[in-house]
Simulated assay, not measured.
Amino acid sequence: MAEVKIQAESRTEFGKGAARRIRRDNKVPAVLYGHGTDPVHITLPGHDTMLALKTANALLLIEVAGSESLLALPKQVQRDPLKGTIEHVDLVIVKRGEKVEVEIAVHVEGEAVSGTLVVLENATVLVEAEATHIPDGVTVSIEGLDAGTAIHASDLKLPAGTTLAVDPETLIVNITTGTTAEELEADLAAAPGAEATEAAAEPVAAAAE
Rank of each mutant, 00 (worst) to 15 (best):
A105Q: 14
K95E: 02
V102C: 03
I104C: 11
A105G: 06
V100A: 06
S114W: 10
V100F: 08
I86D: 02
T85L: 10
V92H: 05
R96V: 06
E111M: 14
R96A: 07
G84D: 03
L91Y: 00
R96F: 05
R96W: 04
A112H: 02
E111F: 14
G110D: 07
E111Y: 12
G84Q: 05
V106Y: 06
E101Q: 15
V94F: 02
V102Y: 00
V108Q: 06
V94C: 04
K95N: 03
A112V: 09
G84N: 03
D90N: 09
G84L: 08
L91Q: 01
A112K: 10
G110H: 08
E101D: 14
K95S: 07
E98A: 13
T85Q: 14
K83F: 07
A112W: 01
V102F: 03
E87P: 11
S114C: 10
E109P: 08
V113L: 11
V89S: 07
V92D: 03
A105E: 12
G110V: 09
E109M: 13
V92L: 11
D90C: 11
E109L: 11
V92A: 09
I93E: 00
H88F: 10
R96M: 07
T85R: 13
S114G: 09
K99V: 12
L91I: 05
S114Q: 13
V102T: 01
A112N: 02
S114E: 15
S114L: 12
E87M: 15
V94Q: 01
V108S: 05
G110K: 09
K83T: 15
V108N: 04
V94R: 00
E101H: 15
I86P: 02
K83N: 10
I93F: 03
V102I: 10
E109Y: 11
V89P: 02
V108T: 10
E87N: 15
E98Q: 15
L91T: 00
R96I: 05
T85M: 11
E98L: 07
A105Y: 08
V94T: 01
V94P: 00
S114H: 09
K83E: 11
K83H: 10
E103W: 14
V89C: 07
E103P: 13
I93R: 08
T85W: 05
V89K: 02
E101G: 12
H88I: 14
K83R: 14
E101A: 15
E98I: 00
K99E: 13
T85H: 14
G110E: 05
E101V: 15
V106L: 10
H88W: 12
V102L: 04
V106W: 11
G110N: 05
D90M: 12
I93C: 05
I93A: 07
E98S: 12
V106R: 06
V113I: 13
V92M: 11
D90G: 03
V89D: 00
I86T: 03
V102W: 01
H107D: 13
V108P: 06
E109T: 15
E111D: 14
I86H: 01
H107W: 10
G84S: 04
S114M: 14
V102S: 02
V108R: 05
V106G: 01
E103T: 11
V100M: 06
T85C: 08
K83I: 13
E109G: 09
G110R: 11
